[in-house]
Design a protein around this nucleic acid. Sequence first.
DNA 1: CCTGCTTCCGCAAGCGGCTTGCGAGCAGGA
DNA 2: TCCTGCTCGCAAGCCGCTTGCGGAAGCAGG
Lengths: 145, 145
Amino acid sequence: MRMTKDEARRRLRAYGLRVTPPRVAVLGILADAGGPVSLTQVLELLGDSDWDPSTIYRNLVKLREAGLAPVVSRMDGIDRYALANNHEDGHPHPHFLCEDCGRVACIKEEVAAALSIHGRWAESIRGAMVQLLGHCPDCLARPDG
Amino acid sequence: MRMTKDEARRRLRAYGLRVTPPRVAVLGILADAGGPVSLTQVLELLGDSDWDPSTIYRNLVKLREAGLAPVVSRMDGIDRYALANNHEDGHPHPHFLCEDCGRVACIKEEVAAALSIHGRWAESIRGAMVQLLGHCPDCLARPDG
DNA sequence: CCTGCTTCCGCAAGCGGCTTGCGAGCAGGA
DNA sequence: TCCTGCTCGCAAGCCGCTTGCGGAAGCAGG
């Protein structure tokens, strides 16, 4: 999932954004993560790079406004971003937040396939962001769950 | 959905909780609301009664620990409480948060019926709290949506 | 390379919702 | 009625998000 700095610069330009060091770094992190990441997670992954948190925050906002990194999950009130990937953008898949380990997983098939809904809420539900809160398979498997 | 003060006192006793004025008031509010309410909503509904917010918070915690008012939705990271009602407790139904009007609705039938899942995530999903984030039918119907 | 407009960055502060420590006060059983 | 332990009010703190402001940097055009 690696992304070269040149690739990052190219993408930023393509979306009409200026190229700045933190912006390139954030893009790289989103690419490496391979899943939805929150502002806090980005900050942690950046680690020792002394960029101001508000700078990273504003860059995430910019990236999402430009369409380069939409918010794919608002689970628990925390916005989580992911790189826009050609496919699966129009139809964001459900996400699962584990209350034990805090991991956010993408539930692509299992629920999405079952959402054949009728009635007053049909349109709302089809367009909604589906979020599931519970215990993930790994944590269920742990004896100390 | 009204609940008399005596009924509230009786319920508190039955769950092993002391009877205090704020506790009775909170119970009454949960009963009147008829839907999931958050700490903030309880405070608003209490209005001019000058109880400290932390008191109400702690009472909600107590009520949920006692099993009298479980958290039925953690949508957007905000805990929402509802009175324990004989039925439908073991199988909490999905909730829908409207991004326009902020209303939380209970989606009893439409999604729940469709959740026949197989595979690695089956158990997790069956036990999970289902949350949907989007635009409710009413807001979709408004022309200025 | 230099200029100048525009955007971005760092700092600092603030907000909303949740949470807790502490001492005074009340509920309720002996 | 008294005593013990739960509860209340106050104050502060935490966490994640958000914004105002002045100085710095990107980048298009000369």
